[in-house]
Amino acid sequence: MSFVSVRDVWQSYDGRPILERVNLDVAEGEFISIAGASGCGKSTFLRLLLAEEQPTRGVVSVAGGEGAREPDRERGVVFQRYSVFPHLSVRDNIIAAEAFGTTLGWLWGAPLRAARARADDTLSRIGLDHVADHYPTALSGGMQQRLAIGQALTARPRILLLDEPFGALDPGTRVQMHDFLTELRAKTPMTIFMVTHDLAEGFKLGDRVLVFDKPRWDPHDPGAYGATITYDFDARNGGIPYHHLMEKTDEPIHA
């Protein structure tokens, strides 16, 4: 049984199909990059994984659960923008990941002190301890996204969804964020879905790269058919998955 399974999912808005016959199995700990042209349904697919929307047909299940009807703590998310709360300080943004799950959304006393200590740990791990008391607006774009990722992970989600998380960053910062994410993954294994416009980024970070496209195309009515997963690349070992097999068979065979 796969960790995330998508079974025959269709999604249409006002009778217009966006996604059709999407099937996918993802093992725990895999990093899935999702690429495709604008309007090909990759963001729609992410919204289905997030349970922000329900598919018209089919089932999306995470960790063997039923199809969720709204976003919950099983799914962490980082958007391109607006992922952190502007009215909370950097530290409070991390604490919020623990506090928001309580009845009134606040922590007091000993639990608060413990959460604050854990938040400071997290901040030093993601390199933001020096700005703990600042508000997010005072942070650079890259720091805001690092905070958003740290915040999402503090809630200990089963899957992490990234919606073009580095799309608004300059190229240098983007490379730094790639390293940051790779390091983070090396320390704590997690299942990640990342939507990206940048194929190179998708191959660099992902274990698999999914490409969404329309398999059927009616030139007289471009909206007639939906998109599905047309390519599912193995992106490990720099996108050359069988490279290691060759090296192995190269060795002389000792009887």
Partner: peptide, 25 residues
């Protein structure tokens, strides 16, 4: 932004918590 409301839900916030801690301030 819709993103903030979604984010709060993924952190486990109920409607009440979203009203008190995301919207109100």
């Amino acid at each position: 932004p819709r993103e903030q409301i979604i984010k709060a839900q993924t952190l486990g916030a109920s409607s009440l918590v979203i009203a008190l801690r995301v919207v109100l301030p």
